[in-house]
Structures are given as structure tokens and as C-alpha cells.
Amino acid sequence: MDLQIFLLLGQDGITSGAVYALLALALVLVFAVTRVIFIPQGEFVAYGALTLASLQAGKVPGTVWLLLAAGSAVAVLDGIRYLREGRYGKLPPLVIFNVGLPLAAAGALLVVPPDSLPLAAQVALALALVIPLGPMLYRLAFQPLASASVLVLLIVSVAVHLALTGLGLLFFGAEGSRTPAFTDISFELADTPLQGQTVLVVLASAVLIAGLYFFFERTLYGKALRATAMNRTGARLMGISSSMAGKLSFTLAAAIGAFSGILIAPITTIYYDSGFLIGLKGFVSAIIGGLASYPMAAFGALLVGLLESYSSFWASAYKEVIVFTLIIPVLLWRSLTSRHVEEEEE
């Protein structure tokens, strides 16, 4: 192994690490706020990438119909509640957001061929189609169980993952897709070629992480999420709605997932079930941060990315084994160094 190979592998590892870092942050966020171990995180990666790919192929992506169905279900569930409680003023925004906007998107897609739009509009449309699925999922699958045990939430999370994977196969087919690169620039760095797209992935991840930091430190909603993460009951007493916090964290998680998917779609082929493994690696990184620390999770993600890259060079057949075995020493170290706090019963 010479220096060039070493650098190329490092570059590859950092690129994957940047994506894992985003997913790890989303997992930590969702777990801290709602105690859900969010297995379907990876599905948003696949949905984001494949929705963009089918828009570019000039097809109406199946996500539109899923969005419409989930939105209608949310509107019916919440609508009944508002009617019972007599809060009629809440009905129009509820219907407009959950049914009206997806209908408008579906109508627009049927009228305007999506492949004629500029790339930026396609990306925006893909994000707009996938991100609302996050809060809808929370409303449908997790909000009714918000006070259930972590185990029950995990089981629901696995069920949601399986349902989304199955729907992904139905919507996008078994074969993968790749979208055209956002940029064709390539650099030379220490005699090593560097693709513009890779730089874009790392840069975008860094910007997004900085944005999240700003959101949590400087905005009211970010502080509300942090408060909920620290103490749910206390936050509720201060007037922070836990279902609002849950929806917000799922929206962020869906946005991060869909965005990562769109970032990596040009450098690799994405399948309807690619998300699971990517999400799982994000999960390993989040475990390194104890599902609580954001900087440790980001560090863990880089570690996973680099480990994956170098082990694919040395022992490609055992690559996944090596990456997932990493979790054992990490768990051992964590259980030896940190005190175990019994979960509070509500």
C-alpha cells in the first residue's frame, strides 16, 4: 500500500463517514427526544435518492401516493379529535397541510413533466415529497405510543422499517438508480484525484451539522427539543408539547435522511433497500456516542467510514463483519466506564 492508495482510501472513508455522521446525528436526536430507536432512518435516504431519480426519469414517484395516503390518515385522525373537542379553527390548516399540499404536488406532477424541470427544482420537489413523511409517520405510528417502553417503540420502529422497505420495492422496483452528478469538477490533491462530488458531500454535511448546532443553540424550537430530550415531564410542565417535539424531531430526521440520499445518489447506486445498511452504520456511530452525544456520534461516524474503507482494501469479504464487530468493544468500554441509570418509569 503506497501513499496514494492510503490517501484515496482515506478520502473514500471520509466521504462515507460524512453521510454516516448525518444519519448518526438524526438517530441521536430522535432517540433523545422520543426514545425511539429510529430504524427507518435509512429508508428516508433511499426514498430521497429514488424519488429524485424517478423525477429525473420523468416518472411520477410513488412517494406522492404514499404522502397522500399518510396525509389523509393524519387528517382523519386529527380531524375527528378536533371535531370532538370543538376546535373548528384548527381544521382548515390541518386539511391544507396534510391533504391539500400533497394533492397539489400530485396534480402539478401530472401536468408538468418532472424531467423538464431544472435540477434544483427537482431536488426541492424530491425533498418536499419525502420530508413530510417524517412527521406523518410520527403521528400515525409513534404518537399514540409516546409513553410506551423503549422496547415497544423499537418493535414499532422495526415494523415501520419493514413496511417502508416493502413500499419502496413497489414504488421504485428492484433495480437501483443513480442520478447525474451535481458537479463534474475534479481536483488534484497531493497527486491524488479528488472528485468535486465527494468534496460536495463533505462540505454539505459540515454545513448541515453547523446548521443543526445553530438550531439547537440559538432558536426557541431547538431549545425546546433539547429541553424535551433532557427531561420530558419537566419540559411539558414548561409548556413544551411533547407531540410537537416528536413531530419536529421526526421532520428533522426525515430531512437529514432525504438530504443524505440526494447527496450520495450521484456517487453510488441506490436500491429500495440500500437505506437499511447505511442507517445501521449510522446507528453503530450513534452507539459510539452512547445515543446521547452529538460530537461523539460524528466522530464515531468518521471512524466507521474509515474502518470500512480500509477494511474493504485489506479483507473485502469481511468488511461488514469488521465494521459491525466494532460495536462489541465499544459497548464493553461504555458499560465499564459509564454508570447505568435505570430508566425512569412514568
Binding site: I5, L9, S312, F313, K319
Partner: peptide, 20 residues
């Protein structure tokens, strides 16, 4: 003689080894 997974997002490591 290298291996990769169906859903891998990168095969750079394997390819570099093969090219070497």
C-alpha cells in the same frame, strides 16, 4: 480475488487493491 456487497455504496478499496 475481491468481494463486495450488493448494497455497498463504495468499492474503492477493492478496486485499488485490484489495480495494484
Amino acid at each position: 480475488n475481491e468481494r463486495f456487497n450488493r448494497t455497498d455504496t463504495s468499492v474503492t478499496g477493492q478496486i485499488l487493491k485490484i489495480l495494484a
